[in-house]
């Protein structure tokens, strides 16, 4: 019951990308194909969950004044571990995500959750929060990348999508990323407004 609500919070009400507009850089840069988007989402979810748990464990030990550097070290550690594991086991994905794997460190979602949630709540709650927020992040990335992969290269998961459709390469390039997120965010807000009865 409670977990169901939590999941809804992560995916819809407080979706990190589409509602809170956090972690925009990786979400626009790697959403060129579904594999990349999903891979980045999973990597970030792993880092987010692990760092949330560790930070929550250590929250009583870490002095308030140096908490941010401590958080950063913990997050950077998990990011490096993810990076090495990706290089060893999924080199193709690592190559595609490129610089955005180490840049998970500065993903505002992760430091944001550490500061706002994990440093104030117990381990179990922080674990759930990390998972839920990670799922929300992955979900949004998948939506963006499905749209961009279909429109930009007429493919889905590497397979052909519609026979005879001429893809619009611009959706794979930088401008298409901005247009896609604007569109998705607009739709999310439109639905939200309708629910709250705002008319226009």
């Amino acid at each position: 019951m409670m977990i169901g609500q939590e999941i809804k919070r992560g995916i819809i009400d407080e979706n990190p990308i589409l509602v809170l507009a956090l972690g925009l850089c990786p979400s626009l840069a790697v959403s060129t194909s579904v594999q990349n988007g999903f891979g980045m989402g999973m990597a970030a979810t792993f880092v987010l969950t692990c760092s949330n748990v560790i930070i929550s464990l250590l929250r009583k030990v870490i002095p308030d004044k140096v908490r941010i550097p401590c958080f950063i070290v913990i997050i950077a550690m998990f990011v490096t571990i993810v990076q090495l594991v990706l290089k060893a086991y999924l080199p193709a994905l690592d190559k595609q995500l490129g610089i955005f794997v180490p840049l998970i460190v500065v993903n505002c979602i992760i430091l944001g959750r550490a500061e706002a949630y994990a440093s104030r709540n117990n381990v179990f709650k922080s674990l759930i929060d990390g998972l839920v927020m990670g799922v929300g992040f992955t979900f949004a990335l998948c939506i963006l990348s499905v749209i961009r992969e279909i429109l930009g290269s007429n493919k889905l998961l590497g397979f052909k999508f519609v026979p005879g459709f001429q893809p619009m390469t611009v959706f794979i390039l930088a401008p298409g990323g901005f247009f896609t997120i604007a569109f998705v965010m607009g739709v999310v807000r439109y639905i939200g407004n309708r629910k709250r009865g705002v008319r226009r």
Binding site: A182, G186, R189, N193
Partner: peptide, 23 residues
């Protein structure tokens, strides 16, 4: 601006147009 696009979404569209120019 349409209500749903106010704020960030319209900024994204603007950025998209700028990116198109920089392309």
């Amino acid at each position: 601006v349409p209500k749903a696009l106010e704020g960030l979404p319209i900024a994204f569209i603007t950025a998209g147009l700028m990116a198109l120019a920089f392309l």
